[in-house]
Deep mutational scan, measured.
Amino acid sequence: TFELKGKVGKVVKIAEDHYLVEVEGDKWIAYSDEKLSLGDRVMVVDVDGLKLKAKRIP
């Protein structure tokens, strides 16, 4: 999973306390310091076990 750092994905679902992000065809649980919206493009900035930390990108 460490190779996911720096990869770009898309928010495909918003849950109460996390997001579901699709990166290279796989879906991952993600969290972010900022509020994300459905369809936002994100970059993986860190990997915490099986969770990704994501940041919105333009």
Rank of each mutant, 00 (worst) to 15 (best):
50 L>T: 09
11 V>I: 07
33 D>A: 08
52 L>S: 01
30 A>C: 06
47 V>I: 08
55 K>Q: 14
35 K>P: 11
44 V>D: 00
41 R>V: 13
27 K>V: 09
51 K>Y: 05
49 G>E: 06
11 V>W: 00
51 K>R: 12
40 D>I: 04
52 L>W: 02
55 K>F: 04
50 L>E: 10
35 K>S: 11
29 I>L: 13
19 Y>I: 07
41 R>L: 14
34 E>F: 04
20 L>P: 00
56 R>E: 02
25 G>Y: 08
41 R>N: 14
49 G>T: 03
46 D>G: 06
12 V>C: 09
23 V>N: 02
53 K>M: 07
15 A>V: 15
57 I>V: 12
17 D>E: 12
16 E>F: 13
24 E>F: 06
3 E>H: 05
17 D>N: 11
49 G>V: 04
38 L>G: 03
6 G>W: 03
1 T>W: 15
47 V>T: 07
17 D>C: 11
28 W>Y: 14
53 K>Y: 10
12 V>M: 10
47 V>N: 05
50 L>Y: 15
44 V>A: 02
53 K>N: 06
36 L>G: 00
20 L>Q: 09
21 V>E: 00
43 M>F: 06
43 M>Y: 06
22 E>M: 09
43 M>G: 04
20 L>G: 04
24 E>L: 11
38 L>E: 09
18 H>N: 10
46 D>I: 02
11 V>F: 00
49 G>F: 04
8 V>A: 08
5 K>Y: 15
47 V>S: 07
43 M>C: 11
38 L>I: 11
47 V>F: 12
15 A>H: 14
56 R>Q: 06
32 S>F: 02
38 L>P: 10
19 Y>M: 07
55 K>E: 14
19 Y>F: 09
53 K>F: 11
14 I>C: 12
14 I>S: 08
14 I>F: 08
49 G>S: 04
21 V>F: 02
15 A>G: 10
56 R>S: 06
49 G>D: 07
35 K>C: 13
12 V>P: 00
47 V>D: 04
3 E>V: 02
18 H>C: 10
34 E>N: 07
48 D>W: 08
28 W>L: 03
14 I>Y: 07
16 E>V: 12
3 E>G: 02
26 D>C: 14
7 K>L: 05
57 I>C: 15
24 E>D: 08
57 I>N: 04
11 V>T: 05
43 M>A: 06
15 A>W: 14
47 V>R: 06
52 L>N: 01
21 V>R: 00
31 Y>E: 12
31 Y>W: 14
48 D>T: 10
5 K>D: 15
13 K>D: 11
30 A>M: 13
13 K>F: 10
29 I>W: 10
15 A>E: 12
50 L>I: 10
26 D>K: 12
51 K>Q: 07
42 V>P: 00
56 R>G: 06
13 K>A: 12
39 G>S: 09
38 L>K: 08
15 A>C: 11
27 K>P: 08
37 S>K: 10
42 V>A: 04
29 I>T: 10
34 E>P: 02
29 I>M: 13
4 L>N: 04
39 G>L: 10
